[in-house]
Nucleic acid binder design. Structure first.
Length: 583
DNA sequence: GCCGTTTTCGGCCCGACTGTTTTCAGTCG
């Protein structure tokens, strides 16, 4: 059993105990243990066998036994019994924003509600307001929460969908008879959230049957929803729909282009094609125009690659990440496509957490992971003291962490840890550390993590006040555009970017889909104002560092070039930017 | 259920908001 699976089960035990109203500290012990396991490096099996697992903080005798049982038998009797004691639907009810274990427990015990559907009906019938501690407003909030849950339940985070897609794709692309294969759709466009996975392949006719068979019998497939000679559809174990289309190799670039989308981008391409008397679809170009013209050039225009398609239409090649009809067609017509940043351009990052606060990995592990990515630096910005939920650092712990950073920095040449902090912007715009403390950091990220429901004007004032502080280097997740997040707050982005420009501050763009802040229009505004932008991978774990890829996708949609994004700067340039003496 | 020790059991992260109450419980980050 995988480490993450063990961690998931421990976490679920904690939640099940909460639903049963057990000792809250016991519940928390399971949640803590789940986090501890997630953060363990190395082989879990070996740790359990050697008994070293007991040295992991948060793992005691009872939980260690359960982990050992999970690893050796794949099951846990305790977990199974706990799960069987409650209806499955209760866990889904917990996903509704504003609904926690205590409420679910009451709803189950008093109203016998066992599922989201039953809860919805009860709300509509006004049954909840009769319960103690519930009211009309609670019903309204729950109904709105259910709607939000339904809207997003069929969506998956990029990183989740990508992992699922790669598992299938790797096996598929090695299949005999495959000529070309690509992951298409919103995944190829690096959208923040993904609806389903589209794979396009070309193959020899004789091999198609075997390829389809291989696809539908892949171990990750939970259910087959369609199987034909050109298209098969499955639902993967993760719950994501996955389509495979197999076409003739001559059709491949057209199919890839068509199924990559976006729909709006494709509509624009087809409109342009018409000007050339061409018709474009997922199979190829064909001549339209007069009978005479068709007679002369009956043959369709052959294209070997997507680049050929764009060239035929008189356009520069448009990278998938820009295909949203956000102005990329116009740029391609003028052959003025910007030089966008790529993963290779990233030299480091500035907003990572470690196990000092709520990160899963130690400072050393994070630093080593960055070096293995070929980066020149890593900026650590753990939470400040008021963020107790995230184990924010007190002044004393800041000192300790900085000491560790200094000693690590002495070990390496050509790589540097930047000592930062993610300091909370308090409701009144003051910061959670004194200027004295702030002055000890290489740079300071200032973020809002509380009191989200201020008016736009008050929130903007709060943030602008924080930006004025001379020790603040950048504004952390300036949340204005909301996606799936709960900790969203209203700000006047234009005013905040103006302030950033006035005070020479950096603005973050989040690679984290729950905190997607600046859309491409705001990026453009920031760029025009000369405000530098940092990609924030919001990395709490080593794996999370890799999410920078996906930050690159977002940066691309923001039309950001290398020079606009500070994560692409060389070490010496960053030192200069932060005002650190170059030694 | 875990931790840390004062080795046998008490304490376990905090602040704000919301909706319910009329002083507080539940939820969230």
């Amino acid at each position: 059993m995988e480490k993450s699976k063990v961690s998931d089960i421990l976490d679920e035990i904690g939640t099940l105990l909460e639903l049963r109203g057990e000792n809250p500290f016991k519940c928390r012990a399971y949640h803590n243990a789940a986090r501890a396991i997630e953060g363990v490096t190395g082989d879990l099996n070996a740790l359990v066998t050697s008994g070293e697992i007991r040295n992991v903080k948060g793992i005691g005798e009872a939980i260690a036994e359960k982990i050992a049982e999970l690893l050796s038998t794949g099951k846990s009797k305790y977990y199974e019994e706990l799960k069987a004691s409650l209806p499955e639907g209760l866990m889904t009810m917990l996903k509704i924003p504003g609904v926690g274990p205590k409420k679910v427990k009451v709803l189950y015990e008093k109203l016998k509600l066992k599922s989201v559907n039953e809860l919805e009906a009860a709300c509509k019938a006004g049954k909840l307001e009769k319960l103690e501690g519930f009211g009309k407003k609670t019903e309204e909030n729950i109904l709105a929460g259910i709607e939000a849950l339904r809207r997003y339940s069929s969506k998956f985070l990029f990183s989740v969908a990508e992992k699922a897609a790669i598992n299938v794709f790797e096996v598929l692309s090695k299949q005999k008879g495959i000529l070309r294969a690509e992951i298409a759709g919103s995944l190829r466009r690096k959208k923040e959230v993904i609806g389903d996975i589209d794979i396009v392949a070309s193959a020899k006719k004789s091999a198609v049957d075997a390829i389809m068979k291989m696809f539908t019998s892949h171990p990750d497939v939970a259910r087959i929803t369609g199987e034909g000679p050109t298209k098969s559809s499955v639902v993967l174990n993760t719950g994501i729909n996955c389509d495979l289309r197999v076409v003739d190799d001559a059709e491949f670039p057209f199919a890839l282009n068509y199924f990559t989308g976006s729909k709006d981008h494709n509509v624009r391409l087809r409109t342009i094609a018409k000007k050339f008397d061409l018709s474009l679809n997922e199979y190829g170009f064909s001549r339209t125009g007069s009978e005479e013209k068709r007679g002369k050039a009956k043959k369709i225009v052959a294209c070997k690659t997507e680049e050929d398609i764009y060239r035929t239409l008189g356009l520069s090649y448009v990278p998938p990440e820009l295909r949203e009809d956000f102005g990329e067609i116009e740029a391609a017509e003028k052959h003025s496509m910007p030089t966008l940043i790529s993963e290779k351009d990233i030299r480091g990052t500035f907003h990572c957490h470690t196990s000092y606060s709520d990160g899963a990995n130690t400072l050393l592990e994070m630093a080593e992971a960055s070096q293995s990515l070929g980066w020149e630096y890593l900026g650590i910005a753990d939470h400040s003291k008021i963020a107790a939920y995230a184990n924010g650092l007190t002044e004393a712990r800041v000192k300790k962490q900085q000491k560790e950073m200094e000693s690590l920095n002495q070990k390496w040449s050509g790589f540097r840890i930047f000592m930062g902090t993610e300091v909370d912007i308090l409701p009144n715009g003051e910061l959670d550390f004194s200027d004295n403390v702030l002055s000890t950091f290489d740079y300071v990220v200032a973020s809002v993590h509380s009191s989200f429901k201020m008016t736009e004007s008050d929130m903007t004032k709060r943030i602008v006040k924080a930006l004025k502080n001379k020790y603040v280097t950048m504004l952390g997740h300036p949340t204005g555009r909301l996606l799936l997040q709960r900790d969203a707050y209203p700000i006047n982005q234009t005013a905040v970017i103006d302030a950033a420009s006035d005070y020479g501050k950096i603005i973050e763009i989040n690679a984290h889909p729950f905190r997607l802040d600046l859309d491409w229009r705001m990026c453009k505004y920031a760029k025009d104002k000369g405000v530098k932008i940092a990609i924030n991978p919001d990395a709490h774990v080593v794996d999370g560092l890799l999410d920078v890829r996906y930050g690159v996708g977002i940066a691309r949609k923001g039309w950001l070039e290398k020079k606009d994004v500070i994560n692409t700067l060389r070490l010496a340039e960053v030192k200069k930017l932060f005002g650190i003496r170059i030694t």
